[in-house]
């Protein structure tokens, strides 16, 4: 499960994009993990309201977040756009000490700096080593930046194109289009704030 890895984009855009996940370790801390996951989810969503969800349950754009929290059994995800909130959340997660793993994705230099501020020493990291194979089949880079925000591949490139066309025709606002793109991402790691900025760039505003 590498769903928060492989996000493409330029450094400016990636500097405002930090998915965070929590996940139980089966056989080690998964028994009756619901209340602990709920506590972690409450802490995460205190610091970011961009997205929240779990692929077994649903996300905040399709379900009531309180209902999602009650149903968590394995983990959940959120996404941050700024380091200040991320550091504050990391600090509180460390303090509440629920004993469930937490992983943050983003630019390594930024994430490591946040860890240092939060007094956290990460034990393990994961690198993305590119896209290979028949690259002719890939969506163009400006579309890939959207679809790689959902690691399960549930956000369609055609939907991105449709949203861009609809914004140009003034059928939908940029903010609403960004949320529409976030809906299929069950886990809650698609960043609608970043998507709105990318959409604005694509429609030339």
């Amino acid at each position: 499960m590498t769903h928060t890895l492989h996000r493409t984009g330029d450094l400016v855009s990636l500097r405002e994009d930090f998915p965070m996940l929590t996940h139980v370790a089966r056989g080690f801390n998964d028994k009756n993990a619901g209340p602990r996951l709920k506590k972690i989810a409450q802490t995460m969503t205190k610091y970011t309201n961009l997205h929240f969800g779990d692929c077994k349950v649903g996300n905040k754009y399709t379900m009531n977040p309180a209902e999602i929290m009650e149903k968590l059994t394995v983990g959940c995800q959120v996404v941050f756009k700024d380091k200040k909130s991320l550091v504050a959340c990391m600090k509180e997660l460390k303090e509440i000490d629920q004993g469930i793993s937490v992983v943050v994705s983003g630019l390594f230099d930024e994430v490591f700096a946040c860890c240092q501020k939060a007094g956290i020493k990460p034990p393990l990291i994961e690198f993305a080593l590119g896209i290979h194979g028949n690259r002719k089949k890939l969506w163009p880079p400006e579309i890939l930046d959207f679809i790689t925000m959902c690691g399960h591949g549930l956000v369609s490139g055609n939907l991105v194109k449709k949203m861009v066309a609809d914004i140009k025709k003034k059928k939908i606002t940029v903010a609403k289009a960004a949320v529409e793109l976030a809906k299929p991402c069950l886990c809650g790691i698609f960043n609608p704030d970043r998507a709105a900025k990318l959409l604005q760039r694509m429609v030339g505003r």
Partner: peptide
């Protein structure tokens, strides 16, 4: 590892995943 990766011509993205190390064994 990264030396080999780069020598073999594979890109290394500037972004990736970082485990914060907050997990513990809790099951009894």
């Amino acid at each position: 590892a990264l030396k080999v990766v780069k020598e073999m011509g594979f890109p290394v993205y500037p972004n990736g995943k970082v485990n914060l190390g907050l997990g513990k064994i809790l099951n009894k």
